[in-house]
Computed example of a mutant assay.
Amino acid sequence: MIENMNELRSFIVVAQTGSFTKAAARLGVSTSALSHAMRKLEEQLKIKLFNRTTRSVATTEAGEQLFKKLFPLFESIEDNVNALSTFRDTLNGTLRINGADHSFLYAIWDKLLAFMQKYPEVKLELTSDMKFADIVAGRFDAGIRLGKEVDQDMIAVRISEDMQMALVATPQYLEKHGTPKSINDLTKHQCLCVRMPTSEGLFVWEFRSPKTKELIKFTPSGRLIVNNNFLVKKACLSHLGLALIPKDRVAEELKTGEVVEILSNHAIHYEGYHLYYPNRRQNSPLFKALVEELRV
């Protein structure tokens, strides 16, 4: 018999964060108190729930099984409690969303702001990540990515218009190195490369033939390799080379002439961002409100 149900809630948070320190901060208790509570829970269940090291904590096989059973139950309890807030014309609760920085900053920021203003008691935790995250393993409520292809047990809802790409450089760079007139000319230039966090390969540049509409792939090369578009933009504005970047990231610089677009007739666009989430989340009033605010 579990003496304190709060220990089960604490167990879920530790399993989610993989850290007693992070879990304690989220729960508002001391690390030592949380660790003691988890040992007490293990003693009551007579099962080891966590493998502990000096740097991390991970669920055992039994702990992971318990987490998978309990998490949907506690999630359902929270949803039902949060649903009561509709009787006072508001919603509360916390939503954790994972996505690329571009999706948050340029695609849906105004929508998120409107959502928070509409529901002042709701907390949003946004995690910016270049790599494609497993939102279930990462304990996120939802993720954001381009396109609508998701796993079978996921739902995808479009939340932005198509993402237009642009090949850009500063006038200073082009004055010194010349302006590319074709895709083949790019081999003669310094290309600002992005190392992809998941595959660890370089981001392959894609263009569209203005005549045949066929996809053209080009593997860039250059002296500088970075792992995010903030550094790509910074390097481009520092006259270090050509950058293939979402056009809205350099919209102001294009207007002022700080950068110019190259081979615009070859520019490609990608299907817009989609919010994807486990199908069990669709019954949550709080999550429904978020989806309705973000969808296009």
Rank of each mutant, 00 (worst) to 15 (best):
N80V: 10
G93S: 09
I77S: 09
V81S: 03
K111F: 02
F104S: 13
R96N: 09
F71Y: 10
A100R: 14
N51A: 11
H102W: 06
L70T: 02
I77Y: 08
M116S: 12
I77R: 08
Y106H: 15
L105S: 15
E64S: 13
D110P: 02
F104V: 13
L66K: 07
N51R: 13
V57I: 13
A83C: 09
S85G: 00
F87N: 11
L66F: 07
A62C: 09
I97M: 09
L66D: 03
L84H: 05
S85K: 00
D89C: 01
L70R: 02
F50T: 14
T53P: 02
E75C: 02
R52M: 12
I97A: 06
S103L: 08
T59E: 11
M116Q: 12
F74R: 07
M116P: 00
V81Q: 02
G63A: 07
I97K: 06
F71Q: 11
K68C: 07
I97H: 03
R96Q: 07
K118E: 15
G99T: 00
D79E: 12
A114I: 00
D101C: 15
D110V: 04
L84Y: 04
D79N: 15
L49T: 11
A58S: 11
L73C: 05
S85Y: 00
Q117I: 03
T53I: 07
N98D: 06
L105I: 15
L105V: 14
D89I: 01
F87W: 03
F115G: 04
L91Q: 10
Y106Q: 15
T59C: 15
P72M: 03
S103A: 15
E64I: 05
M116T: 07
K68Q: 10
F115K: 10
